[in-house]
Deep mutational scan, measured.
Amino acid sequence: MGFKLLSKLLVYLTASIMAIASPLAFSVDSSGEYPTVSEIPVGEVRLYQIADGVWSHIATQSFDGAVYPSNGLIVRDGDELLLIDTAWGAKNTAALLAEIEKQIGLPVTRAVSTHFHDDRVGGVDVLRAAGVATYASPSTRRLAEVEGNEIPTHSLEGLSSSGDAVRFGPVELFYPGAAHSTDNLIVYVPSASVLYGGCAIYELSRTSAGNVADADLAEWPTSIERIQQHYPEAQFVIPGHGLPGGLDLLKHTTNVVKAHTNRSVVE
């Protein structure tokens, strides 16, 4: 069995187990497998329904001669939608809004960016022009300005110390501490036991640490421990890039980060 097929099978099995364990909360999309990078042309966006009122959005972007996937989250909030992270750029984010209108038909009224990198804030200006209120932590807003990236308009308070959590509509926002970046936030959907790890969490097929220019490698494993301790009931975990899975993604990420750190020390 090929690795790609095995990865998709694991996603399907995880979703099936969740649907059985929580039949009222989960209505997993039966329309197909989780979209992969090879299936999404740059400039297009796919939506994948995880649970009743919960979707991931998947886009792709060219970077350094390669094409990478990027995940975000959409959560229903009454007759409105909360968006977590842009679709990595203005063109993708405009396509995301169009796809949401086509498939869901509810307005996106608020959006949260989970850290300051372009795959999370690139497209904020498109959201703002569409009347979406954009939010991020003060740290993310400051770092985005320093980096020359787009800056969300509103500040999220109460997320300055490791372990801080605040309720934001249908989700809980959690600051686990520094990891992929010093400002990275985690998003949890309690009604569906869905954990969105953003770039602080890796997919299972990833074996290298990737972009760690703004990471705190020493603190990252401790931050992941905080996530595990705060959300032990999480059933569906979405990484910032690639295929979702279960809580095993947290341990896998820790292993990859520690291996990278150990290699760096040896070198």
Rank of each mutant, 00 (worst) to 15 (best):
D52S: 10
E145A: 14
S223N: 02
V108E: 01
G197S: 03
R46T: 09
V194C: 04
R141E: 06
P170V: 07
F63A: 04
Q61I: 07
S193Y: 14
G245S: 05
P239S: 14
G53L: 09
I50N: 13
R76H: 15
R46K: 12
A192I: 03
K251L: 03
D85I: 00
I17W: 04
S38T: 05
T134R: 01
L143N: 05
F63K: 12
Q61G: 11
S22A: 12
L81T: 07
P152W: 13
S223F: 05
G43P: 03
A136N: 07
V54C: 05
L249Q: 15
D77V: 07
A234H: 15
Y48S: 06
E219Q: 03
T114N: 00
Y175R: 12
D29T: 15
A259V: 06
Y34N: 05
D125M: 06
T14K: 13
L97Y: 02
L127E: 01
C199D: 07
T140P: 00
L97T: 14
D214Q: 15
D164L: 06
G177H: 00
P41A: 08
F174V: 08
L185Q: 04
E99H: 12
P221S: 12
L195E: 02
V75R: 01
A25P: 05
Y175E: 02
L250Y: 09
I58H: 07
V45G: 11
D85H: 00
R76P: 10
D64V: 12
L83P: 00
K102D: 12
I100G: 12
N211Q: 04
C199Y: 02
N262R: 08
M18F: 03
R46H: 04
G210Y: 05
V237T: 08
F63E: 14
E219P: 05
V266A: 07
V75Y: 04
S31Q: 13
A215D: 08
V132G: 03
V266T: 12
I20W: 13
Q49L: 08
D77Q: 12
V11H: 15
N184C: 00
H260M: 03
V171R: 00
I74H: 00
T14D: 11
R167D: 05
A25K: 13
S181Q: 00
V132S: 08
A133T: 10
L195Q: 00
N184V: 02
L247M: 04
M18D: 03
E267S: 12
A179V: 02
D52P: 07
T253W: 01
A165Y: 09
I224T: 10
T254M: 06
S160M: 12
L159S: 05
L249F: 02
H180E: 00
G198S: 04
V28Y: 03
R167T: 03
L250P: 07
D183P: 00
A130L: 15
S191A: 07
T222Y: 10
D52E: 06
A66D: 07
V237K: 01
Y135L: 08
Q235G: 07
N262E: 06
S139Q: 12
T182Q: 06
L156R: 02
A192H: 04
T36C: 04
A209R: 07
I20F: 03
G246K: 09
N149L: 08
G122Q: 13
S139E: 06
L13K: 09
G53T: 15
S160N: 03
G169C: 02
G246Q: 06
V37M: 11
R167C: 04
N255D: 14
G2M: 15
L159H: 09
L156Y: 03
